[in-house]
């Protein structure tokens, strides 16, 4: 019984939600700056990328 509980705990840690959440949050952060941030430094730098990849621009 104890062993099973330990194995389960180990598996849960191995496939934890935290790294998944961190990766998704990192991805969304990058996309926010290249695709959506309206501050002109981000808009101007990513301008052609936004147009090419059809993010709403201007």
């Amino acid at each position: 019984m104890t062993t099973t509980a330990q194995t389960r705990a180990h598996d849960a840690a191995n496939l934890g939600l935290l790294p998944i959440f961190m990766a998704a949050a990192a991805g969304l952060t990058l996309l926010y700056f290249t695709g959506f941030a309206q501050a002109s430094v981000y808009h101007d730098s990513a301008h052609d990328t936004r147009h090419t990849l059809a993010f709403p621009c201007h």
């Binding site: 998704a24 990192a26 969304l28 996309l31 290249t34 695709g35 101007d44 730098s45 052609d48 936004r50």
Partner: peptide, 19 residues
């Protein structure tokens, strides 16, 4: 700058896909 932004964008999509 635009090409840098393109790389960053695709790494962003990749992070979401692999998540």
């Amino acid at each position: 700058l635009a090409f840098f932004a393109t790389f960053v964008t695709w790494v962003g999509w990749a992070l979401l896909m692999v998540a």
